[in-house]
Amino acid sequence: MNTDPRRRDQPADHQDLAELLPAPGRPVLAQDRHRVLREHLMAHITHEHETTGEQAGATTTPPPSPARRRLVLVAAPLALAAVVGLGVVAVDSAHDGTSGSAAAGVAADRQKATRLLDRIALAAASRPAVTARDDQYIYTKSQGSAAELGVDFNSAEELAKHKGLFTPKPYNGAVQQEQWDSVDGKRDGLRKGVALADPSKKMTMGMEGAGYLTFRQLQALPTDPDALLKKLSGDAKGVKPARRTEVVVENLGAIVDDATLLPDLSAAIYHAMAELPGVRVVDHVKDAAGREGVGLTFKGAPKGYAWVFDPADLVYLGTTDAALMGVGVTDTTGEVPADAS
């Protein structure tokens, strides 16, 4: 079955290395755990199949694409017992080859994107910088799909009733999400969600630990685009060149919301984005709150996905999956800043 003839006689080559540091332990994946993990994978796969099938029929809303989850995600995915950000992980297939465009088209696309990004960066840089104390919180208000924003209305008690394998139903409508993240990451944050169509559907969830990068860490990021790119593409090194843009844009996307409070960092993000191959302009798009704007997308992005900017003042509006409705600084969690409506 194995057609590579080299493989058979190769191990001898590494014999000395194996002696220097033999493989430790005999870790075994317990059978029951194997089963649990497999069934979850299968549930995910089947669920996604069904959902993509449904979406093919319905044309009203663009498919959510949590593959490009807008950061927010505090890094304890499994601990979300009370949380369970549910939803569909849409297939980001079918756009690996934007094959139609000729080389000239690509160059023109790129030039257009660079020009727009320059203007966006300029506009971003001219906004006032916001400062915050260590004991304060960065507030963001977003609107979009529940899955994308990590909002789920199943109560912890309800979830606790189910033992073992259980797949709660995701909420399919649009939600509004508010989040408070500790400036220095030393305090717990808070996330609230409410269904737009049904205000009785609510969620409140404590966010323990620091998020991806704290506001303090954002302030410490380099504001030189090249240095920033270097810093944020650490995990793109092993990635195939064709996918690098995708990875880096995701990392930039993870900080772009909070960065709206930091003009220099914002400008650096947009300048950095202009340096990524495959980034191009989409003229008319709507963010997840339905606001029209000019969009930026990139090679490998989920179908229809774009960052959206106000066509008049080039302010960042959010993405096609999650609109950014407000950003600000507060003294406590749960408090809504006056200037971020």
């Binding site: 549930a43 995915p77 369970v84 899955a147 709660p168 993870a254």
Partner: peptide
């Protein structure tokens, strides 16, 4: 984990 938050959390 960020990418697969939904699936993981189940």
């Amino acid at each position: 984990a960020r990418r697969h938050q939904a699936a993981l959390s189940r």
